[in-house]
Nucleic acid binder design. Structure first.
Lengths: 217, 217
DNA sequence: GTCTATAACATGATAGAC
DNA sequence: GTCTATCATGTTATAGAC
């Protein structure tokens, strides 16, 4: 545990190669599970893609479900969650920008959409991941909407928690439709429309009573 | 084709029994595919549930994919699409009522959600069904929003086509979250919130310029 | 670390007796 | 119409040589 990332001069080589191999496998599995789902994609498919035998693959990951979890973890590091990268970036802009970026990486959307729904089925190893992800996302967006309300920029009557769940839902659902008919669906446009209904323009702020809610900018 | 439903006195018995058997099979398959997906559910599972051998089952449906299509057809007849049942029912009310009804039949939602995303994967026999269903749904809702615009009841600036896709998306997405956390998600509430943002109350009609767009009611 | 061999099992589908 | 028997294949996972 102590000498995993440091790459000390004394012992180099095998660790780095093994780590690279693991990454290759996860990348291959990423594509296979995206195209065929977890149940539909086999270890043999992954092994073929990475150019090794199926048994060698199991030397790196003890089971198929462990490989899936590694793929899901990778997904998190590859793609953001529509949260602002820096404080200058507004919440709404961050969502739109993330949506536009997603259109350039259809494989990421495919993996997410296919595995998310599949995780609802019996004994699916990805279920915990998606349940927790949803809870975290809803909390995050709910806080963002509450903050906007504090600035007087949330449309009156909007409930932050339902709005958060709805934003996540709209995003997921529009991705599904986009995968089935990319030329008919404007993902970023739909999200923008929705957020513009919820969030009032900046220059109208201050009208609703909201004075102190932390540093405003 | 001529003597299928009429049950003529001259030839009774075998037809009716065979038809009943087919229905039993479809019902069992409905539950199996909902709980395990198409790839995860086996013909053996279905056969066990209906109490017959797997080969006998294939006497009624020539292949697993044919059985899936029969299940999807059944889904259409069991569940509505959120369209008004009679002219007295408004579009918005019809959607809310359908959503509330859906909460009472989780198996229907499960089947739909699981198979829809699974249909994105390679060579899935349900893909055509879902692609067409989405096109039909978007057209239907788009027309409904356009009609509301004609009555001056659609919020200015709302695009009927994107709103239609967004409504479908929101509905799908909220069902996924509901399946993973039923106690945290208010499906009908989220849909109502969204539609109330889009559709203006009845008594405000006529303010926006819209005079003649067919019989108003 | 990588492989071959193989276990142990599940799958969808077919043939043919009754 | 229903069954047993079986085919042909694909699955995850293990054992053990090199």
């Amino acid at each position: 545990m102590g000498t995993k990332d440091g790459a000390p001069a004394g012992k180099r080589g095998p660790y780095a190669k093994s780590k690279q191999r693991r990454e290759d496998i996860v990348n291959a599995a990423y594509g296979v599970f995206a195209a065929r789902g977890y149940r539909g994609g086999s270890l043999q498919d992954v092994a073929d893609k990475v150019g090794m035998s199926q048994t060698s693959l199991l030397h790196y990951f003890p089971s198929k479900s462990e490989l899936l979890l590694a793929v899901l973890e990778r997904r998190d590091s590859v793609s953001g969650d529509g949260r602002p990268r820096d404080p200058e970036d507004s919440f709404v802009d961050a969502v739109i920008r993330q949506a536009r970026f997603n259109e350039t990486v259809p494989g990421v959307i495919e993996l997410y959409t296919v595995l998310c729904a599949e995780s609802i089925t019996d004994n699916h190893p990805g279920r915990g991941y998606f349940t927790e992800r949803y809870e975290r996302l809803r909390r995050s967006y709910s806080r963002a909407f509450t903050a906007l309300a504090g600035e007087g920029r949330l449309r009156p009557g909007v409930d932050p928690e339902r709005a958060a769940a709805s934003l996540v839902a709209l995003w997921d659902g529009i991705q599904t439709q986009w995968l089935l008919a990319p030329e008919s669906i404007d993902m970023a446009g739909c999200l923008r429309d929705y957020l513009e209904l919820l969030v009032l323009p900046d220059h109208l702020a201050g009208a609703a009573g909201a004075v102190s809610s932390g540093p405003s900018r």
